[in-house]
Amino acid sequence: MARFAYWLKLAALLGVAVTFAAIPLRQATADAKLPGLENRKGDKCVEDVDIIRRNHPDLLKHHRIETLRHGIRTTKYSLKGCVECHASAKTGSVASAKDDFCVTCHAYAGVQLDCWDCHASKPKTKPVQATEQQASPTMNPVQTGGANQ
């Protein structure tokens, strides 16, 4: 019986130790001064920093389901929003160089994303106009829609 209590205590102690050890581990990415994290617009993220650091995968996944499957178009947790605020001044992107915002941490933490296979890693900007002309040489630009109705 005493033996059992001993093991129980040991297990409890170990549990506590693991929990404490885990906290510094989880904050390791945050504490490490990684290049690229300064790419941000404004002075606040969509959540407090410690929340967005930890929960952004879940927030993004939730928002993706809400938007795509249910047609909810709020912008708070939109991936497009992240890209708009966090694109690098140098590359214009969140994911085209190794110290771009969404790469730097992930490389450090060993996370690989496939998001940018489909999602633009650069915010929407003027270049759209340039492609417009070549894309539809034979028709009126789409924007004039309704003008000659």
Binding site: K80, D117, C118, H119, A120, K122, K124, V128
Partner: peptide, 13 residues
């Protein structure tokens, strides 16, 4: 593989 997608219309391989 695709590149330069419209941010409003993600598409990929």
């Amino acid at each position: 593989p695709l590149s330069d997608q419209n941010p409003d219309v993600p598409r990929g391989k």
